[in-house]
């Protein structure tokens, strides 16, 4: 299969219906073979950026291009913060996703068994997906995405509402998917999780990409002063146009 990566974003702007810029002048490149973690305070535009990359939203300005202008819909998958399960069994939820990707019926059963086993969901396979616990639903969402064998997997704060044990299980699954060659792009608020998982970090603040760096560099010697404050765990105050940490480019 032809690689869809790298993904290039050039001078992306995304405005709300009221014209308020939510993503500003953002350019970046996402290469294969790394786990990219997007961090930043609330309202930084992390989830928006994932949705733009995944194609759920169209940028107001700028271009998003996959390698060789490939149509990449079937080579990518996304796991949301709150998984949406269809009103059918866990197994049928995965089967449905495979049917949308035109996977032959004869092949689906094996794929489903494999991902259910890998995610530890075999026992819940025939249970209605909506009666599963939140952690199980998130594992099922990952299994559903995994079954599609994506080249790139977007995860929007997949452990945001989970306890440490369930978060650990999800992190292990993300690592396993990455080990099979899938590019990981994930947002998180959890700096510890970012340290554990990241090969590369994108730091967003108020819709701008302020830093893109290898994880080690970012956590040891972040270049941007807001990123330094964020890594230290300081609160980032939104005093637009005031103080030494103001974003000089901020303009509507």
């Amino acid at each position: 299969m032809t690689s869809i990566l790298p993904l290039k974003l050039s001078n992306i702007w995304f405005r709300s219906r009221e014209g308020i810029p939510l993503i500003k002048e953002l350019s970046l490149e996402l290469d294969a073979g790394t786990r990219t973690i997007i961090i930043g305070p609330n309202g930084a535009g992390k989830s928006l950026l994932l949705r733009l990359c995944h194609g759920l939203l169209r940028p107001t300005e700028g271009h998003i291009k996959w390698q060789n202008n490939t149509i990449a819909q079937h080579a990518q998958a996304m796991v949301f913060q709150r998984p949406v399960m269809l009103r059918r069994s866990a197994r049928a939820n995965i089967d449905y996703a495979l049917s949308l990707h035109n996977v032959a019926k004869a092949e689906r059963a094996d794929i489903i068994e494999e991902v259910l086993q890998r995610t530890g969901m075999t026992r819940q396979a025939d249970a209605p997906a909506r009666v599963l616990s939140f952690g199980e639903q998130q594992r099922l969402a990952i299994a559903r995405a995994w079954a599609l064998k994506p080249q790139i997997l977007f995860l929007d704060e997949p452990t945001a509402s989970l306890d440490p044990s369930a978060s650990h299980q999800i992190e292990e699954l993300i690592q396993a998917i990455f080990d099979q060659g899938t590019k990981i792009v994930m947002t998180t608020h959890d700096l510890g999780q970012a340290r554990r998982l990241a090969d590369e970090v994108l730091f967003l603040h108020r819709g701008r990409l302020l830093e893109q760096a290898p994880a080690e560099t970012f956590f040891e010697t972040p270049h941007n002063d807001l990123a330094q404050a964020f890594v230290k765990g300081e609160l980032l105050w939104w005093k637009r146009g005031e103080g030494p940490r103001r974003d000089p480019k901020h303009a509507r």
């Binding site: 759920l56 819909q73 079937h74 998958a77 949301f80 949406v84 269809l86 009103r87 059918r88 949308l100």
Partner: peptide
Amino acid sequence: SEYDDQLTSLGSSHSRAIPTLIFD
């Protein structure tokens, strides 16, 4: 409004989503 992002992410078109939404 609940399923939009998930079904679009899975690759469903609006017309293909109709039977799914009726069933669910």
